[in-house]
Amino acid sequence: MALLTDAAKAYIGIESTLEWACDPVERGAVRRYAQAIMDEDPIYQADNDTNQRYGGAVAPPLFPSHLFRRAFGTTDPIQDYAADPHFDGAQKVRGGLPEIEPLKHLAVMNGGSEIEFYRYACYQERVKLRSRYADIVEKESSKGPIILVYTETDYLTANDELLMRVRHTRIRRPL
């Protein structure tokens, strides 16, 4: 029996509306992020000679893709699923796209990315995204059938300048 059903394939082409990150690019968030990735590049730290080319202090290249966090007043999945021993904590809904309901029972793993960079996000800048399900396919792996879910996401400034474009692959596999 195929893992990938027509009901799941129907999500191909679905686009999100524009979604804003709940916070602008904040210095404290950039510091924690840069320290966590162990890249304390001077271009992230303050306006200085190293970042004049970029117009001042900037966030790490991939920062815009990790800026979309849970806003005040939204559902708290950690609390909602606190009593569920099977809740894996994974952030399943990304880029304003709906959960693919027919795949909800499958584990999710990061399959990789193709990224195009155009400029860095600057301090205090607000970031928005627009995303779509580009493709959903089934493949045979050494451990059995898996489903690859491809999404394409544009990260933009408030002035619609393209910061980066990401084609992301998520692997869904039976538990």
Binding site: H66, P85, H86, D88, G89, Q91, A107
Partner: peptide, 20 residues
């Protein structure tokens, strides 16, 4: 914590090993 993603397979060893 830095990017606020709480997938347990990265920090909850019993969940990663026994559940997943």
């Amino acid at each position: 914590a830095a990017f606020e993603n709480w997938h347990k397979i990265h920090y909850d060893a019993p969940f990663a090993v026994e559940h997943d």
